[in-house]
């Protein structure tokens, strides 16, 4: 059997993302990476919590944050998490077209989230002159939220690259793990956001 036949079986296995050794390795390695990412974000959260009141006489969090935009952003990201679940559901049913469709929706929601975030930063900088260099609080805020935003950007590029690369040839056992792992990454971005909206914004306006 050639490599091609092995990777394109007539009947897709139950868990296509873990059907090959490479797939199993990717799956496990990426989960471990998320364990490390947990510590990375915890360090950023910790730094933010330590410095959240260090406003250096500038704007404080409860004067700065508005909840409307944050709520909308949360809805975008939360929904995109569900749509990527749908994408993986169709992957497991070997329905490539529907998977691409749902991934497309995920990406669109991701871009909407990103646009809101950029608007928010722009707003703070121009309306309130609250920047990365205003105070330790400013540095910590932009770093934490910015790291998350950077993850969103990377996730979008990643999913788009996968979608374009595989648009013509469809699903096989070589790219199924890649799609799956990218979706894990996307969920993790949402996990981090849940804590950001709770700890940074909700606790920030209290």
């Amino acid at each position: 059997m050639s490599e091609h036949d092995v990777l394109n079986p007539k009947v897709m296995p139950h868990d296509p993302e873990r059907a090959t050794l490479e797939g199993k390795n990717k799956f496990l390695g990426f989960w471990f990476f998320l364990g490390g990412e947990t510590v990375l974000f915890a360090s950023l959260f910790g730094t933010y919590l330590a410095l959240r009141n260090s406003t250096n006489g500038g704007m404080a969090s409860n004067e700065l944050f508005g909840l409307e935009l944050v709520f909308i952003m949360t809805m975008f990201l939360l929904t995109s998490s569900l749509t990527s679940v749908y994408a993986m559901y169709h992957m497991k049913n070997n329905d490539f077209k529907k998977m691409q469709l749902w991934l497309g929706i995920t990406v669109a929601l991701g871009f909407a989230f990103l646009a809101c975030e950029l608007y928010e930063f722009y707003h703070y900088i121009h309306e309130y002159e609250f920047t990365f260099r205003s105070s330790a609080f400013g540095s910590a805020f932009y770093t934490l939220v910015g790291f998350h935003g950077g993850h969103v950007v990377f996730g979008l590029m990643w999913i788009l690259a996968l979608m374009f690369r595989n648009a013509k040839r469809g699903l096989n056992l070589y790219n199924a793990p890649k799609f799956y792992v990218a979706s894990l990454y996307w969920h993790f971005i949402d996990v981090v956001w849940v804590f950001i909206f709770t700890v940074v914004y909700l606790m920030g306006v209290l």
Binding site: T38, G46, A50
Partner: peptide
């Protein structure tokens, strides 16, 4: 591994608080 990460994360955040 995830819970390992969560454990270190908890210690880190607690420390910073």
């Amino acid at each position: 591994m995830l819970y390992g990460g969560v454990f270190i994360a908890f210690l880190t955040v607690l420390t910073m608080l």
